[in-house]
């Protein structure tokens, strides 16, 4: 079998990514699938929303990702009194220079952890989300580009907790994926209890790749081949979600793009030179969980809903 340069590149990258996952796995125990999804989201230049109870390792996950990729990391704890300026930055008059100088906010980092995003007011939320969408911020008429790569991991407590402002659906759509971490299984839990402090371990993480390499990987992921047969399958999925009466709203075209991009990254992480229906099926729960809602049973989990969708649509 002769291999094309593209395939060689993919194999090489695939090994690199495996190393990143292995490194992360040492710290976050028993959450390999979540890590993979998060990475797929990152490679597809999407942003990630983690929704789970406090204390299951959301912060640790974002920390690990940033460190193992060698990226600048900023954590913003959202509270109800957080103002947009606290995130974006402010211009302050400097007496020495006699001019306004801009003090960039925490958003000017490569990886942002927006912790408990639903605790802030909608106004602050949208400041972050708009920056996220456009990859730039406009403050006092001046547009400033955000660094590249730029990756937001927002965490959100389950919406029924008190004192929260749930993100409206239109804002949720800006996250490529929403994942849940869930409780660790018993084996991982035991290891967690027996092992050393996770925060200590975090300090010792060495970056596996350089940020420039990450941009290359993002480029490569975009180039993974999606055949018309695969697009047929994706369209069937979208069509089913729109046509069937089981969901409140069908998947938007933006959701379709998100699925495709995420599936491409996933294919790269699996070492495939082309996107397969399996790749779509793997990332589907993460991508559609926050976009699709069952009409009948509001409590259906995103995973259940995605599985239902997968089961209903035959692969063409």
């Amino acid at each position: 079998m002769n291999t094309s340069p593209q395939e060689l590149l993919i194999t090489h990258t695939y090994k690199e990514i495996d190393a990143i996952i292995a490194a992360s796995n040492r710290i976050i125990l028993g959450k390999e699938h979540a890590i993979r999804l998060a990475l797929a989201c990152l490679f597809a230049r999407g942003h990630l929303l983690i929704e789970d109870l406090p204390g299951v390792g959301k912060t640790t996950l974002s920390h690990v990702l940033a460190s193992s990729l060698g990226l600048g990391f900023q954590r913003i704890q959202f509270t109800s009194d957080l103002l947009p300026a606290d995130i974006l930055g402010v211009s302050i008059y400097s007496r020495e220079t006699g001019a306004f100088s801009f003090h960039p906010g925490p958003i000017f980092a490569q990886v942002i952890l927006a912790d408990e995003i639903n605790r802030a007011t909608p106004r602050t939320q949208s400041a972050l989300l708009e920056a996220m969408e456009e990859q730039q911020v406009t403050i006092e008429g001046e547009t400033r580009l955000l660094p590249e790569p730029f990756f937001v991991i927002a965490t959100q407590n389950p919406s029924h907790q008190v004192g929260t402002f749930p993100l409206p659906e239109s804002q949720l759509d800006r996250f490529m994926m929403r994942i849940e971490l869930g409780y660790p299984d018993s084996g991982a839990e035991r290891e967690l209890l027996m092992g050393s402090d996770r925060r200590e371990l975090l300090k010792h993480i060495r970056p596996v790749i350089k940020p420039e390499r990450l941009i290359e990987i993002q480029h490569l992921a975009g180039k993974i081949h999606a055949s018309s047969a695969l697009l047929d399958y994706l369209q069937d999925l979208l069509e089913y979600s729109r046509k069937s009466n089981e969901f409140q709203n069908g998947l938007s075209p933006r959701a379709g793009l998100a699925i495709l991009h995420a599936a491409k990254s996933w294919a790269l992480m699996e070492g495939h030179a082309e996107v397969l229906p399996e790749d779509i099926q793997s990332i589907l729960p993460g991508v559609i969980g926050h976009r699709l809602h069952s009409l009948e049973n509001l409590n259906t989990s995103s995973k259940g809903l995605a599985n239902h969708l997968i089961k209903q649509v035959p692969i063409p």
Binding site: L276, P277, E278, Q281, I310, K311, Q312, V313, P314, I315
Partner: peptide
């Protein structure tokens, strides 16, 4: 093969 089962699966 189930209708929704991908080739690798």
């Amino acid at each position: 093969r189930m209708p929704h089962e991908g080739p690798l699966d």
